[in-house]
Design a protein around this nucleic acid. Structure first.
Lengths: 251, 251
DNA sequence: CCTTCTATATTGACTAGACAATGTGTACGA
DNA sequence: TCGTACACATTGTCTAGTCAATATAGAAGG
């Protein structure tokens, strides 16, 4: 009989109750003090156990009310949809806004344009020297006022200098169309997805709770002759997204 | 001046030292006791701070040696490659083995076949009633003896009854070819990726360290007339994989 | 030389407290 | 009536210890 540490038994108890549906999203757990009495341990031991569930993303602590079972609402993220042409309706312009509006939720976004020095990850993908100045068009997108994902597009400076991309305003026809107009239309993209825990900066921008992993989606667009002209970094909180794409048996 | 809790200052200190490269993969941190003395706090406070970095996946504790900066080695995961036909070379049969062998590492796998009752996630994807008996062909794949990912394929029972799929042996021509032979060739697939923290079962099967998120990749294959015939669940530890796929501007 | 035991340093688990921070509701005062 | 102040319950931070578990190095013994 393998005996588990007390804090793991406590975590397992409530993990099971949540998985079984006995405790549902929004329900409150007993207080630390109550659990400590029930299990006959110190309050600190209960905290250690519950902190496991917090980092697993199962519960949240709301001081001074108690612990509550977390609820998750997934938004569907389709990297492939981007490849399709935009509809011309002016108020239905952005893929992100489109999808959200279709679900009856209220989208918004905050745009910020800056010149930054390419870090090693962007430099490699845009095929420039690390440290080269590039243009970053950084967006945080919101649903119903809550930050939902980060969408930072990066361009080589000489491609977008003096274009609308440099202004932090919404571009109705889309940044890709701006590149087409300047002779840098994209016809291929490579997607990369990394999974990791967020950086403190990302936690701040996305108002992430503890125990929320993120997917980082690098989307690099190439012209027909193979030149990278755009590298978009999407940061998707794991508790708010489901990534979906489709495949056909071609070759 | 916002004053931070001591444990957060400690975490931030070492997070910075790791990010800046001052501490590199494999390096040892000072002991809890040493850090406690340096910061003038109790050992428990240091533990709280370092536990943050552990759940962020930055460091690992190796008792009784100390804390070490973690190293990560990414394996590239390409969901799209599956759509291509297999090469006929008999010793180069499995897509997973192929890729690993090409990198000069040693692949192996453990196969286990069982009949299970479909949970809600699989039932929905295979379009059967929850609780229906289906066939699960569960694999854990290893590189150099270390578990690397989980690859559980599920099939409706009537499609694979009395076929080789029911035996826990390696199938040289591939399970998809077995389905083709029985008249259920696939020509389309839908991929879904979820990001979350692993379940205790997954932690055990994959020998995951704390603070490692996983990507769960549902890959559902359909016949030409739209019937789902296979649902594969890949569990990819975030610290060992990079998901890559490619897109062309078609429509 | 090889094996076996033991000491040691380190993290892991846990206790029994203290005081701080923070929303909520209630009682009180203008 | 309307706000203000305060009490309260709860989680957050922290202390100063105890004892357990464990891998390694070195000592002891054959």
């Amino acid at each position: 009989m393998e005996s588990q540490p007390a804090y793991q038994r406590i975590a397992a108890t409530y993990r099971t109750r949540i998985a079984s549906g006995e405790l549902r999203a929004g329900d409150q757990l007993p207080t630390e003090h109550t659990i400590a009495d029930q299990f006959g341990v110190a309050r600190q031991t209960v905290r250690t156990g519950l902190s496991l569930l917090v980092t697993e993303g199962l519960i949240v602590a709301r001081r001074p009310h108690g612990y509550f079972v977390r609820q998750r609402e997934y938004m569907i993220y389709r990297p492939q949809e981007k490849s399709r042409p935009r509809p011309v309706t002016p108020e239905m312009v952005d893929r992100f806004s489109q999808q959200i509006a279709a679900e009856g939720r209220v989208p918004s976004q905050r745009i910020e344009v800056s010149m930054v020095q390419a870090g090693p990850d962007l430099a490699e993908r845009l095929r420039v020297e690390p440290g080269t100045t590039i243009v970053a068009r950084r967006r945080v997108r919101f649903i119903n006022g809550e930050p939902t994902n980060i969408n930072d597009s990066h361009f080589p400076l000489e491609l977008v200098k003096d274009s609308e991309i440099m202004s932090p305003a919404y571009i109705p026809r889309g940044t890709d169309q701006v590149l087409v107009d300047r002779g840098y239309g994209q016809d291929r993209a490579i997607d990369e997805i990394l999974i990791r825990m967020p950086t403190p900066d990302e936690i701040h921008r996305l108002e992430l709770g503890p125990g929320t992993p993120v997917a980082v989606h690098y989307d690099t667009g190439y012209t027909a002759d193979g030149r990278p002209v755009r590298c978009t970094v999407n940061v998707l909180p794991g508790d708010r997204h489901r990534i979906v794409f489709e495949r056909s048996w071609l070759s």
